[in-house]
């Protein structure tokens, strides 16, 4: 019998610690599948960030460095420049990439560093218990915006994919979702492309995942999946903003 579905070899055979309905597991799997598909597992050095995904090294069977909060693109820059044969990716949440690490994010992109940056945008701080993120939706209630986020005073959601696509050097910028099988197939292509660009030495790639956080959204997994379609995608349109698949 021919197996048609199995665990990617770039993932360890361990259960994820993520909450039920969280999209980290899907994003992890897509990244591991792309690493397997391109046969680059032995070259990958991943950069874990601070947030729910800090335990990247518990799941990915690749070398991993744990970066300070927000600094993953700078740390990744150091790895890639010191060892150009490595394939380097960062995996960062919205607080890490778009708040405390905004400078590192923009400047690494603007230098055209040979990195794949995976951005998990779930509009909220997960690990610390549901505070406002730079991508929190207008009106969204979080533990630090109990009355809902006010655009004037608390800010409008930062559109990271659009901001990075406005820079000249990045080779590939996409925003994807993983809340249904159709979007997962699109996301899979984008992730593979992000790695392929680096393998071919073509430069910087950025993939933003619209991601569900049912626990901190206080929703069931199914409600959270619908919320991605109904609330996140209208604010953060999906698509390829730079380069092509």
């Amino acid at each position: 019998m021919k197996p048609v579905f199995k665990r990617p070899k770039s993932l360890y055979d361990v259960p994820f610690h993520y909450c039920p309905g969280c999209h980290h597991g899907i994003a992890h799997r897509l990244i591991a599948e792309a690493i397997d598909a391109l046969g680059i597992q032995e070259r990958v050095v991943a950069v874990a960030s601070i947030g729910c995904s800090v335990f990247l090294y518990d799941y990915f069977a690749v070398d991993v460095l744990e970066a300070p909060h927000g600094r993953a693109p700078a740390v990744g820059t150091g790895i890639k420049r010191a060892r150009p044969e490595s394939i380097v990716f960062t995996y960062q949440g919205d607080g890490d990439l778009a708040a405390i690490g905004l400078a590192e994010t923009i400047h690494a992109a603007n230098r055209g560093e040979q990195l794949a940056v995976f951005f998990i945008n779930n509009t909220i701080y997960g690990m610390t218990g549901g505070q406002m993120a730079p991508t929190t939706l207008p009106g969204q209630k979080t533990t630090t915006t109990p009355l809902g986020r006010r655009v004037i005073g608390e800010g409008a959601p930062l559109k990271m994919a659009e901001m990075i696509a406005a820079l000249k050097p990045p080779a590939f910028v996409a925003r994807v979702a993983v809340n249904n099988s159709k979007s997962i197939f699109q996301a899979k292509k984008a992730v593979q492309q992000a790695f392929r660009i680096q393998v071919e030495g073509k430069g910087y790639a950025f993939v933003e995942f619209l991601s569900a956080c049912p626990t901190n959204w206080k929703m069931t997994p199914c409600e959270a999946n619908r919320h991605v379609s109904e609330a996140l995608i209208p604010e953060f349109p999906l698509g390829i903003f730079k380069g092509d698949l």
């Binding site: 050095v45 950069v47 460095l65 970066a67 300070p68 600094r71 700078a74 740390v75 990744g76 820059t77 150091g78 790895i79 890639k80 420049r81 010191a82 060892r83 490595s86 400078a103 590192e104 923009i106 400047h107």
Partner: peptide, 20 residues
């Protein structure tokens, strides 16, 4: 040689390079 965007980024780059 990299002129970093900040002192924080510069030492973080060193951390990445040294880790290899």
């Amino acid at each position: 040689f990299i002129q970093a965007e900040s002192e924080i980024a510069a030492i973080s780059m060193v951390m990445g390079a040294a880790a290899t």
